[in-house]
Amino acid sequence: MPILNFRVNGKRYEVAVEPTTTLLEVLREKLMITSPKMGCNTGDCGTCSVFLDGKLIRSCITAAMVANQKEVTTLEGIAPHGEFDPLQQAFLENHGTQCGFCTPGMIMAAKALLNENPKPTKQEIKEALSGNLCRCTGYKKIVESVQAAATQKN
């Protein structure tokens, strides 16, 4: 079995994986990092979103070995221990969460947007989150949360 040698949220891991194992399966089932969720397992719903070397990816359709010698960041790793990212604070204050299942992927997608574009328009936010499904909120408060985080940053 190939050995996957990578970093997740700043820590180094070595895991034996099958060539067909996905990054999501490694994160959830081997490392028990559970913020990335399995919603569809076909790359459609976005709830498994994580960063691979700072770039937003869908971990459910990414072979685990793709992450070899790379750095993965999940929601657990976006803020220093005990602190909130402005996005987490904004989602909390603006009720950007409801059941909470899509929230980790949603915040990761929003984080990817703000890293690239710190002052996005409403339309740009909607486009950036268009690959992340939420069935509870109707998206309004999610978009408002991202807007609030973007305002707060500057």
Binding site: T34, E76, F84, F91, L92, H95, G96, G100, T103, I107
Partner: peptide, 22 residues
């Protein structure tokens, strides 16, 4: 507007859904 009682766990990803239990 009151904070959601489980909001902190949701935004940090700590909410443990059934599939998150091992």
């Amino acid at each position: 507007r009151k904070p959601k009682y489980e909001g902190i766990a949701h935004v940090t990803g700590e909410t443990q859904f059934v599939d998150d239990m091992f």
